[in-house]
Design a protein around this nucleic acid. Sequence first.
DNA 1: TATTGTTATACTCTATAACTATA
DNA 2: TATAGTTATAGAGTATAACAATA
Lengths: 145, 145
Amino acid sequence: MAATGTTSDFTNPLESLHGYQLRRASNAIMADLARGLEPLGLRPTEASILLLIDANPGITQSEIGRLLGIKRANMVPLSAALERRGLIRREQMDGRSHGLLTTAEGAATCDAARRIIEDHEQRSFSHFSPDQLASLVAALRAIRA
Amino acid sequence: MAATGTTSDFTNPLESLHGYQLRRASNAIMADLARGLEPLGLRPTEASILLLIDANPGITQSEIGRLLGIKRANMVPLSAALERRGLIRREQMDGRSHGLLTTAEGAATCDAARRIIEDHEQRSFSHFSPDQLASLVAALRAIRA
DNA sequence: TATTGTTATACTCTATAACTATA
DNA sequence: TATAGTTATAGAGTATAACAATA
């Protein structure tokens, strides 16, 4: 075959691996979302934490970590950054734990993030039929568990 | 509801996002594969490079990077580590590029990696029907593009 | 001019160990 | 004893900018 540039002259044995396909798709999706959120100064992880606090006022760092699969220790700089930027605040709970809440600015930023995420989801997944999407999500949930 | 520990008392708005499901599934899969490859002293990225060299003797670093989505600059320490361990060797091509080849030990390690990866794929994806797997791969490829 | 390999560097995410204070 | 928050640290992966040598 002539080197037209449309295909590769190399064989990629990874392409037949489902795990590889999953990783490449995930990386592509996350990179696109990161670009979308950039104007807000939020990374995907920070946005996910903000959404979770907004939906669960008073939730603790540890609880967020459990829900999102983020280690307790790694939650510290993440929530500290959101607090420093005035997007969330802390409220003492029982002496060893604080509940997290969005500030007015945080709630507004959260709304903006939600719109960007929705737009991103539309762009990324609107090509699929409802049936295809349902079976995709079912597969992804099964893989996670 | 009583706090039985079987469900969460919190609402997770991320769960309805396909991108989030994709990332969590990808992270779970890659963590499992990393555990499987650990006895070989290979990380998933290193194993993927080794497989690609074994399937394409003489392939260059830059070509591998293009196929796997790894930047040229980031390929340097990766192939250097494989060479230092005696799993691959370089062969001068045209003065500015070298072809990469697996050594005998590298080919053997590659075989072992392939077996571990196959086992991992079986464990992770054998629950799905061929139809489900085909539509999953089609979806993941579409998302990547 | 474009490409290969390289160095240097920084950022994001993840992981573990260990400590304090509180329940 | 278990949990919440924290500090310190390390390791993967990814990103950009810049350079020399070569095509």
